[in-house]
Design a protein around this nucleic acid. Sequence first.
RNA 1: GGAGAGGUGGCUGAGUGGUCGAAAGCGUCGGUUUGCUAAACCGAUGAGGGCGCUUUUAGCCCUCCGCAGGUUCGAAUCCUGUCCUCUCCGCCA
Length: 424
Amino acid sequence: MLDAKFIVEHAEAVKQNCRNRGVQADVDRFVQLEAQRRTKQAEWDELNRQANQVAKQIGQAKEAAQRETLKEQGRRLREAAADAKKTLDAIQEEMLQIQKQIPNMTHPDAPVGDASANRVCRHGKTPVRQFDFQPLDHVQLAERLDLLDLDAGARVAGHGFYYLKNEAVLLELALQRYAVEALQKEGFTLVITPDLARNEILEGIGFLPRGPETQIYSIENTDLSLVATAEITLGGMFADQILEAEQLPIRLAGISHCFRTEAGAHGRATRGIYRVHQFTKVEMFAFTLPDQSDPMLEQFCQLECRLFDGLGVPYRVIDTATGDLGGPAYRKYDLEAWMPGRGEWGEVTSTSNCTDYQARRLGIRYRVKGEKGTQFAHTLNGTAIAVSRAMIAILENYQQADGSVLIPEVLRPWVGKERIELKT
RNA sequence: GGAGAGGUGGCUGAGUGGUCGAAAGCGUCGGUUUGCUAAACCGAUGAGGGCGCUUUUAGCCCUCCGCAGGUUCGAAUCCUGUCCUCUCCGCCA
């Protein structure tokens, strides 16, 4: 969420930003409501002040008759105050609805336009491999190597679910271990988060748990949902907390399962485990001071690059265009890995600087010693490893002419072998 | 799941209808003292919003004692709901 005062004072910039991002939000109405809110707020304050004054007099009044008169007066004032409050609440509710639709402001260097304006800003160290045979996609590979059971997944839980088998299980664990150890060396605090969270937290991060378009599975008769990413639970860790400035930045590396309904995504890249309802992800998250968030985004992006360079997977880095940014993001980089079987680049990581947009909703603040008041922290998130997609990239890039798949060297200590052989 | 206790400021913790945004202690910050440090002493020290001022500094008002409602002229205090924490019992990986 943007600050209400900021919206009012920079209405034109906010409107332009909405246009750049292709978002409809009635900024003018918001500005108008803010003026009304102030008036009503003043009215409510004044009525309360009077009522408080009367209440004090009653405490001191000696005569019963005088007390009764004052009581009546107090009653009327409280009623009037309640009315004013009702109007005030209605105004604030309408403002909140608009405010929630307004996306974050955008980094001046982010390309302006829709998804076609996305800018490739760099490539990984590993070159795209030229095959001297027809490469298979991960589904074919997994079938031949007995790594995946999509049929059983569908039978048990429906389309979009899957069983990992044999070396794929080891690969999943190895990828987690690889990411987690790398991040620990970088000084991240390791955490395993809940896989469920309160809807209030989801909303604070910027997910909508309800509605026809929702990506979120919710738990019936509770206010809980399955998390779509550990970003939710990591960001929620400090909800309503006041941090000390010297604690920042705080960097967390969290493991969670991720659950997504993928509503409306049928028919598009649905083959295999590219788009699934459940996967495991190692996620980076940071809470920073405002002037630390830009460099932190670069750091997150570099860490993602290093992880995929280490895996020996070819990738490119996308500086996401305004029209393709999610609401909370100020700037976002995606890593897209080359997936030979699919014959296209596929998103494997995503890192965003959300500035204070999430922190304002979640109440994540910091205090500077010696200064009055508190400020909202900045939050950033970034994928270290999304296991299912990383696994596709590895299987497809490391496949051999004889049908086997080499294990990336960095993962061999955990997989315990250097090659996945065809079963005979 | 059952029974009980409890959620108050950065922390500990007092406060059972009015003068309580809230004692006290700790912590933190500033000052005095001091060769330095410590101790001691003095002072300051919650958040959000509004008015005012606008060069700065004051000043004033409202809201907030987990959260949401209710009773009342008046609620941290009484009532209801809810969330959370702790203890004991049960169950269980």
